[in-house]
């Protein structure tokens, strides 16, 4: 999808993802409570909050990894809007490897460490029926190039890669089927600063070129400032504030957001 398509989408009033009253409890404790928002095509939404604020629980519920107790997660599928919470598991899993992508904080959770880089990238293609080795390999090489991994590393296993390369490989593996929505859990966590910058640049380029929508969970305010169009601040499982990213960061309204913003070390 080109950026022009993306802009045309941006003018539609049909959200790509509509979340309504999403609630998840762990026994008596709240994971996340009554979360509602719309995500439009081409938008990047950041979710910030301290550890235990419920942002990872929310992401898991959105991505179908955890069943929520209440609420709806309506995705605009090719066949129209569908509630992914109540759809059949087979359909949800099929969507998870075609229309959706999930980038884990730890590449080990998102990669098959015993499988070569090419096999990792090719898996989603094979999962949706690709049966031509040469084509699969050509696409894998193309995608390794797009995430700046040299083609001659295609048969190396991820173990032989640096942390930043592993994370880029995970991104290639996820984006090869051209998803429309990407969930990212601390995608730059655990990487050193220069590698983070490279990854951020890469993600921004891919989001723009592919017209991706993304939901990024992070505790790094610098990351969301550079990547996210919109920001949601969570505390104790509740969304305490949401809005335009730079507005929330520069003119925070809620006490907790003000504390969060003022706690960041200035470089």
């Amino acid at each position: 999808m080109t950026a022009i398509d993306r802009n045309m989408h941006a003018e539609t009033d049909q959200p790509l993802l509509a979340v309504q009253g999403l609630t998840k409890r762990y026994g008596g404790r709240i994971g996340c409570a009554d979360v509602s928002f719309d995500l439009f095509p081409g938008e990047v939404l950041g979710i910030v909050g301290e550890s235990g604020s419920g942002k990872s629980t929310l992401l898991s519920c959105l991505a179908g990894h955890l069943p929520p107790d209440q609420g709806r997660v309506i995705f605009d599928t090719a066949a129209g809007p569908r509630d992914t919470v109540t759809m059949a598991e087979a359909e949800r899993r099929r969507m998870a490897r075609t229309d959706w992508a999930f980038v884990h904080q730890n590449p080990r959770d998102g990669l098959r460490m015993g499988v070569s880089a090419g096999g990792n990238v090719g898996e989603r293609l094979m999962a949706i029926g690709a049966r031509h080795y040469g084509d699969i390999r050509a696409q894998a090489i193309d995608w390794l190039g797009r995430v700046e991994i040299a083609a001659d590393r295609i048969d190396d296993r991820p173990r032989a890669f640096s942390g930043g390369m592993q994370q880029r490989l995970q991104i290639a593996r996820n984006l090869v089927t051209g998803p429309r929505l990407v969930f990212m859990d601390e995608p730059t966590g655990g990487l050193d600063v220069s590698v983070q910058a490279r990854l951020l640049d890469l993600l921004r380029g891919l989001v723009r070129e592919m017209g991706l929508s993304a939901i990024i969970v992070t505790h790094d305010l610098a990351v969301v400032r550079l990547l996210a169009d919109r920001l949601m601040v969570m505390k104790g499982g509740h969304v305490v504030e949401q809005g335009l990213t730079d507005q929330v960061l520069d003119d925070p309204q809620h006490a907790y957001t003000q504390l969060l913003v003022s706690s960041v070390l200035q470089v």
Binding site: A10, F40, E43, D229, R230, L244, Q247
Partner: peptide
């Protein structure tokens, strides 16, 4: 709405 402002800025 945020997305209206994003479009305005774009």
């Amino acid at each position: 709405q945020p997305r209206q402002i994003i479009r305005l800025r774009r």
